[in-house]
Amino acid sequence: MTWADLGLPDAPEPSGNETPAPKPPREPKPPKPPREPKPPRDPKPPKPPKPPREPRPASGGRPPRDPDDTGSRLPVVLGVVAGVLLIAVVVTLGIALTRPSSDAGPVGPPDPGPTTAPTTQPTASPTSSPTGIGAPVAVQFGGTGFTLVDKDDQTVFTHQWRDKADVAVAALTQAFGAAPTQRVEAGDGSSYPDYTVYQWDGFLLYDMVDGTGGAQRATFTQPSYATFSRNTVGKIEMTAERGLKIGSTIAAVRAATPDREIPRGNVGSIRFVFDIGRSTAGPPVQYSMVTDTDGTSVTAVLYYFAAGS
């Protein structure tokens, strides 16, 4: 089809300088109507909480243990610990018993350790005598104490008056072949102490109780003393000074020149005191010898502090 067919003049030939006719503007689209807001949704009701699951039963159908039930578990725990310790001890003992001994060789003397001064030992035990000394056969009395001697007049044991009596008691017990009875003789409560009395048949040893009556053993003038009323105790002879014995006559006593005669409570009883000036607190402590008589003969011999008697 041509422009002529349409009854229109031919279209002019376009030149290179001509601009095309502008296109008519598009009509704007009408605006869309606003959407109506949707109504708010009703809130969903909260879901009901799920019920707690029941705990699974333990093996064997037992209910689970209460976690707070520590008392029931404590014996089990202690039993396990004790079993472990027992196994450890058994293993240790097995290793120790099967371990071979250490290197063989000469065993040296034990380590003496740090050098220390030896402790002071009490008077030699009466059960052992020096070499060459025999068994005691007599007790010899003197101003400073008494001595156990053998048949050759060798000293077996010596007790001085300030010595404690325990060792002397042991020596005399062995010599006499019998243990003494024991009692306490009360003092005056002020200046004269109590005495523990060790008594054999015919011999008494008095030992002061330190601190009683205000007296102290280290300074008291009569810490211990002795008396005998038989010439032999067991198989041991009692030997006083000046050759006086139990049964010696008053004439023999006076012939030994005592320092003093003191009438006693019993009719005819006289006490004779020898060597009054010898009684002293020492050192060493020394006593006088005293003989008691019944008016005809000696009934007892005493060694004690007699100054001022």
Rank of each mutant, 00 (worst) to 15 (best):
T123K: 13
D150C: 01
G132V: 01
V139E: 07
Q199F: 03
R217E: 01
A124I: 04
Q182M: 14
L172Q: 00
W200P: 03
A226D: 11
Y225T: 14
Y192A: 12
S129T: 15
P180K: 06
R217Q: 09
F228W: 15
T158N: 04
G189F: 13
W200M: 13
T219C: 10
G189H: 11
D153Q: 09
G187Y: 04
Q216W: 11
D103G: 10
A170K: 00
M208T: 02
P112Q: 14
F141H: 09
T116R: 15
G202C: 05
T219S: 14
G145Y: 10
V137G: 12
T158I: 08
Y195P: 02
Q222N: 13
W200F: 07
T120N: 15
G113K: 01
S128P: 14
P109K: 00
K151W: 05
Y206S: 08
Q121S: 13
V169P: 08
Q174I: 09
A186V: 02
D103V: 03
R217A: 10
T212S: 04
G134M: 14
Y225N: 11
P114Q: 11
G143I: 05
G214C: 02
V167D: 09
P130C: 12
D207L: 07
T221N: 11
F176W: 07
F203A: 02
Q199S: 14
Y198T: 07
G189E: 04
S129Q: 15
R183L: 01
T144E: 06
A124D: 15
L205A: 02
D150T: 03
A170M: 01
S224Q: 03
Q216N: 12
V156L: 02
Y206L: 06
E185M: 11
T221E: 12
D210N: 13
A138K: 12
H159M: 04
G105I: 09
P110I: 13
R217F: 08
K151I: 08
P110T: 12
Y225A: 02
F141Y: 14
L148S: 09
G202T: 03
R162S: 05
T173G: 06
T173Y: 02
A186M: 00
A104I: 09
P122G: 05
T221S: 13
A175S: 08
A175M: 13
P136H: 04
P122N: 04
T212N: 05
D111I: 07
P112I: 07
P130E: 00
F220C: 06
R183H: 08
Q182G: 10
P118K: 03
R183D: 15
K151M: 11
T123A: 15
A170Q: 05
T173I: 03
T147P: 00
P110R: 14
T196I: 10
F220S: 04
F146P: 05
G145K: 06
P126G: 13
T144N: 06
K164S: 11
P223Y: 10
T212L: 07
M208S: 10
A171N: 05
V184L: 11
A165E: 10
P126I: 06
Y206P: 05
T144S: 09
D103H: 13
G142E: 14
D150S: 08
T123M: 03
T127K: 14
G189N: 08
L148K: 12
P114I: 07
P118C: 08
